[in-house]
Design a protein around this nucleic acid. Structure first.
Length: 433
RNA sequence: GUGAGUGUAGCUCAGGUGGUUAGAGCACCAGAUUGUGGAUCUGGGGGUCGGGGGUUCGAGUCCCCUCACUCACCCCA
């Protein structure tokens, strides 16, 4: 027998997952609104891929030896099928793109999506197991202007939210031969001195050589002196592409910092990689990461189409906005009118009055607890309704309603037939334009 | 996965060396003002002191276990 409900501890959301409560919804609205508005105004189309994919889609695209695939996916098994909640957005979008046939009928697509991703990992500051991302992808072109569209959009998103002093860091990982050549060169450079590096470096040396250079340990840093730089290995073509992206961004007034240290962790990245930082945050200042994945579509069984994109996590973004005080004064949306019932007779009529206002396109609600007149007025004022419509025996007897302007604290009685007109008059004067 | 910290009312927190019915502020409800809001005053409701076990005459307080949260590492989509 399972324990009764009384015996267990209160239900709570699964570890690392949090509810967005009504009080927090305005902030989320703001982020989602900015993401959609800025994307659409640039010709990006919204796509909403399924949240579950066949597990193998992620192992193929992200790389089988990464932690992501090895232990950080929420996987559901049922019969012969193994499905996983998406740990990132790109693979699903590329899959949907192929499935929809865009590769043949309209290969160049500018796409975006906003939605939840899932990662089974130890929760930490700014890192939840269910988190929301704003994902942007341009699939089907290697045009440097596509890179610029993507990078610039990421930066504009943060600026639209009011974050200033951003730093766009740019790098190229090359592609194919030059990428391989660089890895080999770096490996050759580091190999003789690996015994003097820290454990972390040795681990990275095996896993992902490029990340060895990320080590913060001063001793290791010293050993990195003279290490080969990726930019010196780029083919003329890739070098030209990288420089063109930078030049075009500068031409838009978007200054960039070339940072050879930027190494995205996933296997599928090629050529352009970038991060948008808010340096004031210090060690963990990256708000956005992205880059090219020019062979992902091919690896998923489609044609060899180039693509570039980014992901912005809402959690770190909200953290920054909160610290900057940019989330204060974000009011919840409330209906304009609050219908206040003075007595039992008024309570019956409140419903009809609210509905009449709603029919006229005016938001209206009322108390559901048979609370006193004073308590209802208090709610109306506190919640932020612009006006109260008071109804009770007196008004009913006279075929009238009392309308109170909550902002000006003035009220007057009008014939019931004048209700919407009088309400509109108050709303019109309260919100000029 | 590793390490550390914290768990007392819806929220933020008090509760020296264990000692009777566990407190405050905010929030909430009601009244003062028998039909009217953000102030004030008065009163009120609300707590498995994370959970379990142990020590003790007695545990919010000490010990063990466990769970949750937080922070860092790892990893980074």
């Amino acid at each position: 027998m399972s324990p009764s409900t009384r015996d267990r501890e209160p239900w709570r959301a699964p570890r690392g997952m949090r509810d967005v409560l009504p009080e927090e919804a305005p902030a989320w609205d703001r982020l989602e609104g900015a993401a959609r508005r800025l994307s659409r105004s640039r010709g990006f189309r919204e796509i909403r891929p399924v949240l579950l994919e066949e597990t193998e889609l992620f192992t193929r695209s992200v790389g089988e030896v990464t932690d992501i695939v090895e232990k950080e996916m929420f996987t559901l098994k049922k019969g012969d099928t193994s499905l996983s909640l998406r740990p990132e957005g790109t693979a699903g979008i590329a899959r949907a793109y192929l499935q929809a046939g865009y590769a043949k009928r309209a290969p160049v697509q500018k796409l975006f999506t906003v939605g939840p991703m899932f990662r089974y990992e130890r929760p930490q500051k700014g890192r939840d197991r269910m988190f929301t991302q704003f994902d942007v992808e341009v699939i089907g072109t290697l045009d440097p202007r596509a890179d610029v569209e993507v990078v610039h959009l990421a930066a504009c998103f943060f600026e639209d939210l009011g974050i200033e002093g951003l730093e766009v860091r740019l790098n190229s990982m090359g592609d194919g031969a030059d990428r391989d050549a660089y890895r080999a060169a770096l490996r050759a450079f580091l190999a003789p001195k690996m015994d003097r590096h820290c454990d972390l470096c040795r681990s990275r040396f095996e896993r992902n050589v490029l990340r060895v250079l990320d080590c913060k340990n001063p001793d290791c840093q010293a050993l990195h002196e003279g290490a080969p730089g990726i930019l010196d290995f780029l083919s003329p073509e890739n070098r030209g592409h990288f420089e063109e992206v930078g030049a075009l961004l500068e031409s838009l007034g978007r200054s960039v910092v070339v940072d050879p240290g930027i190494v995205r962790g996933l296997d599928y990245y090629t050529r352009t990689v970038f991060e948008v930082h808010y340096p004031a945050l210090g060690a963990r200042s990256a708000l956005c990461g992205g880059g090219r994945y020019d062979h992902l579509v091919r690896d998923l069984g489609g044609p060899d189409l180039a693509a570039v994109g980014f992901a912005i996590g809402f959690t770190p973004t909200l953290l920054v906005l909160g610290e900057l005080g940019l989330l204060d004064d974000l009011p919840e949306s409330v209906p304009e009118a609050y219908v206040v019932a003075a007595d039992a007779a008024g309570r019956r009529e409140a419903l009809a009055i609210a509905e009449e206002l709603r029919s006229a396109g005016i938001g209206a609600t009322f108390d559901l607890e048979e609370r006193g007149l004073k308590a209802q007025m208090k709610v109306a004022g506190k919640v932020g309704h612009l006006l109260a419509v008071l109804i009770g025996e007196d008004e009913l007897a006279r075929g009238a309603v009392t309308i109170k302007d909550m902002v000006r604290r003035e009220q007057r009685e009008v014939p019931r037939g004048e209700l919407t007109r009088a309400v509109r008059a108050i709303l019109g004067s309260a919100e000029p334009g």
